[in-house]
Write a protein that binds this DNA or RNA. Sequence first.
DNA 1: TGGTAATCGAGACGGTACGTCCCGTCTTAAG
DNA 2: CTTAAGACGGGACGTACCGTCTCGATTACCA
Lengths: 192, 192, 192, 192
Amino acid sequence: MLAAAPQPQPARRSQAKHRAILRAAVAAVADGRFADVTIDAIALRAGVGKQTIYRWWPSKPALYVEVYADLVPPDLLSVDCGSARANLEEVLGRLFRRLTETPAGAILAGLLALAQTDPAAKAAITDGLVIGRRHLIQDPLRSAVARGEIDPAFDADWAAETITARTWHAVLLAPDRLTPEFARRLVAETLR
Amino acid sequence: MLAAAPQPQPARRSQAKHRAILRAAVAAVADGRFADVTIDAIALRAGVGKQTIYRWWPSKPALYVEVYADLVPPDLLSVDCGSARANLEEVLGRLFRRLTETPAGAILAGLLALAQTDPAAKAAITDGLVIGRRHLIQDPLRSAVARGEIDPAFDADWAAETITARTWHAVLLAPDRLTPEFARRLVAETLR
Amino acid sequence: MLAAAPQPQPARRSQAKHRAILRAAVAAVADGRFADVTIDAIALRAGVGKQTIYRWWPSKPALYVEVYADLVPPDLLSVDCGSARANLEEVLGRLFRRLTETPAGAILAGLLALAQTDPAAKAAITDGLVIGRRHLIQDPLRSAVARGEIDPAFDADWAAETITARTWHAVLLAPDRLTPEFARRLVAETLR
Amino acid sequence: MLAAAPQPQPARRSQAKHRAILRAAVAAVADGRFADVTIDAIALRAGVGKQTIYRWWPSKPALYVEVYADLVPPDLLSVDCGSARANLEEVLGRLFRRLTETPAGAILAGLLALAQTDPAAKAAITDGLVIGRRHLIQDPLRSAVARGEIDPAFDADWAAETITARTWHAVLLAPDRLTPEFARRLVAETLR
DNA sequence: TGGTAATCGAGACGGTACGTCCCGTCTTAAG
DNA sequence: CTTAAGACGGGACGTACCGTCTCGATTACCA
């Protein structure tokens, strides 16, 4: 599973509130820009006191790491279509669709921005979004190497990082480019 | 071409103040974190009224686009060492040195963050840092193709974008990785 | 009736902060000139955020109308010494003492000045300081007429307005003249 | 003549500019509220550099004391209609007309306000508007006493001050009351 | 089933930076 | 040398959120 679930579920925490807050957080980003979302606005929208949010998440980035994990659940990205190429294309296709069709893309961009602002956020994001999820790209490549489908000299981790870097580059500057065509090209260049 | 056109200014602007502000802006980042830099703090440090800053730059990102262009002047990155590999290694080496040895790296990261916050900033950054500077990476690759040094099917622009994406990825998450070794590896993988 | 209705407040306002702000506002005028008093300075002195002042008063004049009402409480000026002359002399004596021995005089002068600047202030001041308090001068005169102590043709309201006008004239230009002697003369001329 | 002409007419001062500035100052008040008039606005309107205004007048109140003297020239208020009552009514009638039909009333109110802000302004105003002009009200009363038209015990100066106080009171709070009827009543009550 | 303690909504609070406004002074270039 | 134009340092403004805090009212466990 993923980083962002540090809550020890103390005695009488309301699951309903928890979900209401996550839902409100998604809706708030869908409505405006990520950077304009305030904790107050989420609280208002969720019909919840501000304190109730701060009780369970230390900060806005921590909350949104969990929201992101909800919107792009890792198991959605675990596929097996037979070949490295097919697997990667499927993974990236699903990821890009999530990033463009839900607020996940805006949230990812916003989180990368917040990571520059807040060192605690940087750690949470590094753990939750980099370390915690890079295997999703690495695995198809690594197993293709292991199966002998790809040249054993191929550096799967370097390639995975290139894919991540290009994805994030697009998320940050040109989310429109996150198309199936871009996914195909990315895989093709990687495997060349 | 140039990143942020330096002086389309309306005539009698004080060059001394202009420089003092840029210098103060650099110093402010060197002293603290980019996100913590305040316009007031820059004004104070430059011995200048806040209004004098707002008179010439609409916002903090606009100011820092110019600061970045000052710290990493494009002509610093125009070299000709004979081969594509040598040129690229030299360009990236110089760039990485600037990004790590001056506040330029922190500024670039901060600007990418602000681009997520402020649509005007996004435009300024896209124009100034992407469109205005991508030729610095593209040119060595394109001319290598033109000279027949590289396979004519090689897509120089795609490769340049990969280099940029990986560089920015490192700037955002792990500036320590911007080493000469990383530059060499990046060039090697690109030209493989 | 009262000048500025003190607490139509929405419930859980901190009375301690309220009082601290009023106290700081008085002290700030006592320390410097009314026009030099800053909302920031009052906030600082009261150990309060600026927003806490703006939350409860729309502007500096609104705040000082309440401060004035605190410094010169109307019931202080309700006396009954037997005769119109005695009553008026007592009322004006107390008023003048308040105006000269506390910052009330400076505040009154400042408020009259602000009324020229800010239409909202003008309304607040007209309501709070003119309409709300003129009965303090009118009443002794009116009841003297009613009791037959003064000629029934005497226009108590005109006389009250003359007293107010002369008092304010002195407050604005020569606060030193607000002496017991001036009070006696004013009453004598009025009742002649 | 009046206070506000401290200018030693240095060498090449332009009378045309001087008049343009005074005219612009009047027009600026006529257009908006006195408190909103800025020196910049007057300069702009007069087609003059800001410095040119500051060269000849130390501050906005100093400028407007001269403007006021221009709008309500003292000789306009020197009349002789035969009786104290007639003289006073004529003087007050003309004064009230000036105060209501030109920006003079707004300027007077504004100056009284500025006098509370700026000690230098207070001196200028006391000299220019009180000491320099009170004889206009005193004279008709004093000469009536001298001529035996009024009881020799009548205190002309006290009465003049009452008239001034009531006039200013109206200027500050209710300029609409400056009617011929008010002038008659004021004279009648004074001479009773 | 009533007592009691944590959790909740609401929102006041101290604080900090914002970007704007105007002051009165200083600088520049044109006449 | 004076002028208009306007840049400049300075400083208060009123706003927006932050993250903390204090209130009762509600809620859900436990006696």
